[in-house]
Design a protein around this nucleic acid. Structure first.
Lengths: 244, 244
DNA sequence: TGTCAACATATTTTCGAAAATATTGGATTT
DNA sequence: AAATCCAATATTTTCGAAAATATGTTGACA
């Protein structure tokens, strides 16, 4: 370490923050499967850290809805269910509608430019990895997430944005689940382009309608593969630890 | 401990859960003032527990928006500001509107009965404690919270309900702040009755309009006393630890 | 065979102390 | 006097172990 680095603060993230992001990513990608028990000892080994930052991260994720906690019985990955998916889809549709309405009302040239940029990056990102045949490239998920964030970036409400982001992550988990169950992933560039077009044209009603349709269409496909995913997991022996 | 108790599970709450509720209540009531540092040692002494459950509770509250965390600098009570109040009010108005719309659509006789009961309890609860002159009775806060929860109880969406509850708690904190700054508290039984009347009449538009007006009217009063509250706190020497 | 208690194990939860990082205050130099 | 460095202190963060609770298993007994 040079003497310079002692004065610049490179803002080293805490173990806590690091492991929080890791666990969240693992849950959203279903590498930690729905309803699976989250034993501290197992997670300690998995992430190579002590028990305290693990528990603190899980506590945070419980508030976000990705983890459940029962007193004296520990943590679990939140279970999935058809009811939960329906609730999530409906709620997310309404929240995104508000955010989109406000964003279109407030958004200026800067917002429009960022949105076009996000769309461009999304369309030029391969959806499936060329190496692993049917798994979706994590980079595509990132660009997809960024595009939808760009749509509502100008809404002007940190609170609404945080709520939207939380619901988006929960929805992503269901998509990851449907991918695992070998459902073909549709290519919906046209859909995204239409939403963006309506937003840029300041056509609030149309943007909201298209966005809601986008959310619901995705949810329907996921719902269809949900029962299949459940069967697949049960056959693999995940009866107790598996999904609800 | 008798032999019977070993088989009945009285569900002892964990220290964690207990201290979480305590800290949340203290923050919402501004007994822990906005922007105040939350040192683990101080909280350890205040609540008489170890550091682990404290940190876990604070982590949970950070996700709820009542606490902020900066890496290696610890926790603080979330600061208050005019911008934050405006954001909170606008967002809460929209969220409650959705919940109210769904609740009116789904609600049956059971919901109506509970709502009438909640209103009755609210109106028969003294607002100010007879002992301490100008402090609001915590029991009134509870009934007020219950009444607004009863309005949206039939909305059918656990997710939306959780979001609404979180925003409601944040708004309550601002009200507590305005009370501390000696603002007179208005008696708004008539307002609550009108909202309930519209809901029971299944007049969605009117119920939403009245509810939003209720939220905004309260926020305006709070906003006026906000600058006064700030001055009061600063004079008391809370410059560094006080409010943002 | 089935039920229940008592023991043994596994796991969660909590504490106290160690390690890592930030902050403060004073001495030194420009 | 202002800025800078260094040491001392305070605080956060993390770990490892102890305490509390849940779960599983065995054996006695009806």
């Amino acid at each position: 370490m040079t003497s310079v680095e002692q004065h610049e603060h490179p803002i080293e993230p805490t173990i806590n923050a690091t492991v929080l992001r890791q666990i969240r990513a693992d849950i959203v990608a279903c590498r930690l499967t729905p309803n699976a028990r989250l034993r501290v000892e197992a997670l300690r080994l998995r992430y190579g850290v002590g028990g305290s930052p693990i528990r603190e991260a899980l506590m945070r994720l419980e508030a976000e809805g990705l983890v459940t906690l029962e007193a004296h019985k520990g943590f679990r990955v939140s279970p999935v269910s058809h009811d939960n998916l329906v609730d999530l889809t409906k709620t997310r549709g309404e929240i995104e509608a508000i955010a989109l309405r406000w964003s279109i009302a407030n958004g200026g040239v800067e917002w429009e430019a960022d949105l076009l940029g996000a769309f461009h990056r999304l369309t030029h990102q391969r959806k499936t990895k060329r190496s692993a045949g049917d798994t979706v490239d994590p980079a595509w998920f990132r660009e997809h997430r960024n595009f939808h964030a760009a749509l509502v970036a100008a809404c002007g409400s940190p609170k609404l944005k945080a709520i939207r982001e939380s619901l988006f992550a929960q929805a992503e988990r269901y998509v990851a689940l449907s991918i695992i169950s070998k459902s073909p992933v549709r290519n919906d560039i046209a859909e995204h382009e239409q939403i963006m077009g309506a937003a840029l044209a300041h056509d609030v009603a149309r943007a909201i309608r298209l966005n809601s349709a986008h959310i619901e269409r995705t949810a329907e496909r996921v719902a269809k593969s949900l029962v299949g995913a459940k069967r697949a997991f049960l056959l693999r022996g995940g009866i107790d630890e598996g999904m609800g």
